[in-house]
Nucleic acid binder design. Structure first.
Length: 426
RNA sequence: UCCUCGGUAGCUCAAUGGCAGAGCAUUCGGCUGUUAACCGAAGGGUUGUAGGUUCGAGUCCCACCCGAGGAGCCA
């Protein structure tokens, strides 16, 4: 059976063979210290001249960084090792040689690392991020599964712009134009009428020429939608959801968070209830802090940060002016029954959602008002024609959530192969 | 798209308008306990590209290309 470093304690005193990569090496006369990693952990193998053949000792001196190797030896307790064990090697074989590995164990600039993203993933920090991303995605699925939601996949090719205004990626679809989806929401509204509680989870695309630490052109979004839900049910669901994700990571990924030097106490504090303020109250907070955002304007990154500084938990801002929100939002006077959740510590908006307009006439009027083509939304209007009901949902951006939980400055490290305005490779 | 800053060895960075350098990486040598090991030596450059000013340009001017940070928009 294959032996992994994470299980090494089980083999104390036994002679085993590991398959791994050499991530660093140190030598001292008749000793070579091979730093090995196999994706499940790191361990040091000690090659002593007296314990191995001359050929193996010579080979151990020559192995290059990131070569794949097979090391045989005895598992021994070692106090100075991080995992408490090391391997007293008796044999070393090179499986695949590595020549001139570009990422050295010293500092590198972001651009250089992004050009070598496929290799950068091998580093300790990047592995920790990948594992936390995995945990977040698993928690998303578990949360909705435990609550009786059905995963309903939304299409990637869409004929229409869901929110109209934002820039979409246009693709040639035989003799027609199609767009890469920017949201599965409209499809989830239809799905909620079928299964009651629906969610989709997949990549979405925005062709915005945004060059900031919060933007990718391809990002992953999870979008639940529930029939007979109003805006307050929606907020209850959102805070329970976010609490669950954060606490699952705290519970299962403590070591990864430590590698990233994340302040875990700040995450442990993310428990319900989260503060809820109206848009009007948010404007008041901004005024008090000397920000001159006028009533009626949307909030930018600076405003989100100012508001989030007031709280040590994610804050939900609800009931924005209808004028700055999309056509499908449920109108209540001059406000929309919508909610944004802003992560603490300046990580920005992680959730946007709300109650949808269930009245077909009001929806038609909004479509006309915003100059959208009614014919492409005809199927969407059917959701109101046949047994319409109030319903609500939200979208959570995975990469911003990963950035917040990992404490990363930029979303480009939160996804294995980021797609940015000026990056399509590797 | 706009604003700000930058581009020098494989990487990270120095160099008052006056001989282009260091650390790491690489190669060679030394060390029985190293933790981004350490010590010694060597190789490595059309200073992003094209013009211009000057006795002399990595350094000053102009254009372009590329990158970093931020804004708008958004998750």
């Amino acid at each position: 059976m294959k032996i992994y470093i994470e299980d090494i304690a089980k083999y104390e005193g036994q002679t085993i063979t590991l398959q791994a990569w050499l991530y660093n090496k140190r030598s001292s006369g008749k000793l070579h210290f091979l730093q090995l990693r196999d994706g499940t952990g790191e361990i040091q193998a000690v090659v002593f001249k007296g314990n191995v053949s001359d050929e193996v000792f010579e080979l151990s001196d020559k192995i290059t960084q990131e070569s794949s190797v097979e090391v045989t030896g005895t598992v021994k307790k070692h106090d100075r090792s991080k995992i408490g064990y090391e391997i007293d090697a008796t044999d070393v074989k090179v499986i695949g040689e590595s020549v001139d590995y570009p990422i050295t164990p010293k500092e590198h600039g972001t651009h250089f690392l992004m050009e070598h993203r496929h290799l950068w993933l091998r580093s300790l920090r990047q592995k920790a991020i990948l594992r936390i991303r995995h945990r977040i995605i698993k928690s998303v699925r578990d949360f909705f599964d435990n609550k009786g939601f059905t995963l309903v996949d939304a299409p990637i090719f869409t004929p229409n712009a869901c929110e109209g205004t934002t820039n979409l990626f246009k693709v040639d679809y035989f003799d027609e134009n199609a767009y890469l989806t920017q949201s599965g929401q409209l499809y989830m509204e239809a799905a909620a009428m079928a299964v009651g509680k629906a969610y989709c989870f997949g990549p979405t695309f925005r062709a915005e020429k945004s060059k900031t630490r919060r933007h990718l052109t391809e990002f992953w979004m999870v979008e639940p939608e529930v029939a007979f839900f109003d805006i307050y049910d929606d907020m209850d669901l959102a805070e329970e959801f976010v609490e669950y994700i954060v606490q699952e990571v705290v519970k299962h990924n403590r070591e990864d968070l430590e590698v990233l030097e994340r302040d875990i106490s700040k995450l442990e504090n993310i428990k319900r209830p989260f503060p809820r303020i109206s848009y009007d109250e948010a404007i008041e907070i901004l005024k008090k802090k000397g920000n001159d955002t006028e009533w009626g304007a949307d909030f930018g990154g600076d405003e989100e940060t100012l508001i989030s500084e007031e709280f040590d938990k994610p804050v939900m801002i609800h009931h924005y002016p209808m004028a700055i929100k999309a056509f499908y939002m449920k109108q209540e006077g001059d406000k929309a029954a919508c909610v944004d959740m802003i992560a603490p510590e300046g990580y920005g908006e992680i959730i946007g959602g709300g109650q949808r307009e269930e009245d077909i006439e009001k929806l038609k009027a909004k479509i006309k008002e915003q100059g959208l083509p009614e014919e492409v939304f005809n199927w969407y209007l059917d959701v109101r024609r046949y047994g319409s009901c109030k319903h609500a949902g939200f979208g959570l951006g995975i990469e911003r959530t990963v950035a917040w939980i990992c404490g990363l400055h930029h979303v480009r490290e939160t996804i294995p192969f980021p797609r940015l305005m000026d990056r399509l490779k590797p």
